[in-house]
Design a protein around this nucleic acid. Structure first.
Lengths: 131, 131
DNA sequence: CATAAAGGTTCCAGCAACCGGAAGGTCAAG
DNA sequence: CTTGACCTTCCGGTTGCTGGAACCTTTATG
């Protein structure tokens, strides 16, 4: 199967697939004409990558997950630990963003938003809390 | 004032300050010896940048905010619009992350996490929703 | 058979927003 | 006089791709 079809099945751009090959996450065979030739197993692997990435795992985490995927004797606990760490990370990020939003929307709210040049937002940015 | 002191006052790494200069967000005078020389106004500007960045504005948004800051006749509405757009963006990001977290923590929860190799997380990644 | 469109290939460059380090100049203190 | 803390520039790397140029191959059509 050529890269176009593989891309469609894995729901990944061609460019991304070539990039994944470049960094050693996958390596398909080559046809006589030099075209990449993806087996169903390759496509499966690409799909694994697509899903892992969309769940927020970094490339390096994906690499690790793939190695666990390949290792038929790994313990499920290993995988679970990675997933839980990721959940924690995401949670932290959510907290940060929530605070950010509160600060910013308080600022926006305090601004009358008319034609006058006086603006609490700019004033805060200019001389805010760390002044 | 040399870059070290400016950095401390603005709470920005030296490297970052030089970078901001490189991309034209600031340009301090130079002393005889070639050292950058920051005026209080420069430091103020750096602080503005530090605060804006920490509130999640991109560099280009900061550039815009600075130009509004410099323009004594701009309407506060212009600034408010930018802030509100940012709040909306942040909100979207929070929503995305929340969904991500739900998916991932459901997965982690479904995994018994012991020594056995069978793992629902890996299984999902391998053949998940887009199989 | 010619040709044009739609695939494929490689490599090079660039995005955001910096960070780290090397090689070197400068300045104050002991 | 030397040590060490500053400062300078420049180069490369980070993450995860994406776009484009220049080129080859395959397929469809006139």
């Amino acid at each position: 199967m050529n890269i176009g079809d593989a891309a469609e099945q894995a729901k990944l751009p061609r460019k991304t697939i070539r990039y994944y090959e470049e960094i050693g996450l996958i390596n398909p065979l080559r046809s006589e004409n030099g075209y990449r030739d993806y087996s169903p197993i390759d496509v499966h692997r690409l799909r694994f990558l697509q899903r892992s990435r969309s769940l927020g795992f970094t490339i390096e985490e994906c690499r690790l997950l793939l190695s666990l995927y390949d290792d038929k004797h790994r313990a499920s606990a290993d995988v679970k630990a990675i997933a839980e760490a990721k959940v924690h990370e995401i949670d932290q990020k959510i907290k940060e963003l929530t605070e950010l939003k509160a600060t910013l929307s308080a600022l926006a709210h305090s601004c009358h938003g008319d034609r006058r040049p006086d603006c609490p937002i700019i004033n805060d940015l200019a001389g805010g809390p760390c002044a």
